[in-house]
Amino acid sequence: MNAHAPLLSVEHLSVDFRLRDGLFGSRTLSAVRDVSFTIERGSTFGLVGESGSGKSTIGRAILRLVQASSGRIVFDGQDVTAFGARTPLAFRRDVQVVFQDPISSLNPRQTIGATLGQAIDRHRPMQAPARDREIARLIDNVGLAAYQAGRYPHELSGGQRQRVAIARALAVQPRLIVCDEPVSALDVSTQAQVINLLMDLQREFGLSYLFIAHNLDVVRHMSQNIGVLYLGRLVEVGPADVVHERPSHPYTQMLMASTLVADPVAQAVRTRARRQTIRAELPSPLAPPPGCAFNTRCAFAQPQCRQRMPELQATGRGAQAACLRLDALPASAIAGDPAREEVTA
């Protein structure tokens, strides 16, 4: 395979679900629509958006837990969407997942050591002494104590269980890990610990991540590149610092404004921007608005926004945004140094 090519390429991916509508009818839910991005080897691509934006569906399509309706997913030169009904074991080994709620994905009747040993047995069978040493190494790698190999999931804290989930993913020596909201159920201090652990493991083992979250600040800390999703479409994509510091799309600005930060001055600026930006509720994915799907909530929407779907266009410094009025939008109230903004009570 080409070592200079991206490890993962998502090309015009769409995922549709057929839903029952009464006794005999059905409707189509377009969960993901024409999404494209790449993940370079040893790097992190962050996907951010509200609940219902399609983030987890993209992750599940990459993992082959849901079927792509159109487009391609190419992993290290292989077209994942062409695998057929059976997924090769080698792909299952190369692409692992860490879910939001580890307690539901860990067997409550198995000790932590047994859980890790089961993953090793399936993908990397070895003699018992070597297996025990590998389990001990994995537990140490994720910052757990050796005695915790004999504990059950309910005997661990939420952060410790998430470390076990990470260790289980590492047990098969993957190249890509889909992190699906891995810290959203944890308190702030534990979130920081888990994020730092993931970054340390990436440096040590050369891992690549798809990091899915709804908090743009968390995603920026983890990622080299960020994609912002709204109702199944990418509305902004680019280098993490550019998207975070100079958000171009009104929806990205809304996400920034609604994120809590430690600095009270910065939070006051974001709260003011939030009052100016957020309008209405998230539309139903079953009946998205015509044209730009964000037009019902956007303070800058014009008639043409309800008539035409915007395409991604360059905004500078390697970023792109899908907005018909990029040239007419004022500078974001939350861009740049928030401490320089005037704050009133």
Rank of each mutant, 00 (worst) to 15 (best):
V219Y: 04
R161V: 05
A192M: 07
V32Q: 01
N196E: 07
A130L: 11
S36C: 00
K55N: 03
A90G: 12
Q148H: 06
L260R: 14
R279H: 14
S332K: 10
F37I: 09
F45W: 13
L19V: 14
L144F: 04
L13P: 00
I120K: 14
P283D: 01
L207W: 06
P290M: 07
A213L: 08
R272L: 12
M126D: 08
A130D: 13
E155H: 08
R168E: 00
E281A: 14
T111H: 02
S223R: 01
A82G: 11
S70L: 07
V269Y: 11
R137N: 03
M254V: 13
T28I: 14
T57K: 08
R161G: 04
I166K: 04
L156Y: 03
Q162D: 03
G49E: 06
V172H: 01
P239A: 11
L65S: 00
D101T: 03
L7S: 06
E236Y: 08
A128S: 13
R86K: 12
V10R: 08
E155P: 08
D337G: 12
Y209L: 11
F300L: 07
S208W: 01
R41Y: 04
T87F: 00
Q160R: 04
A119S: 07
P283C: 02
L197P: 00
D200P: 10
P6Q: 04
M222F: 09
D140R: 14
L29Y: 10
A85E: 12
D34P: 00
T87E: 00
D79K: 02
Q118P: 09
R325F: 12
G59A: 01
T252M: 05
P285C: 04
R203M: 11
P239G: 09
G22S: 04
T190L: 13
A90M: 12
G143A: 05
H249T: 05
M254C: 13
A287S: 15
G227T: 01
P174L: 03
G150N: 10
Q162G: 03
V343Y: 13
V183T: 14
S223K: 02
Q307R: 14
S105T: 12
D76Y: 12
Q307P: 10
A331N: 10
T81W: 06
H123A: 03
S69L: 09
T296S: 05
S189Q: 09
M256G: 11
T190C: 11
D217A: 15
R168S: 00
Y251K: 00
P6E: 01
P6K: 02
R109D: 08
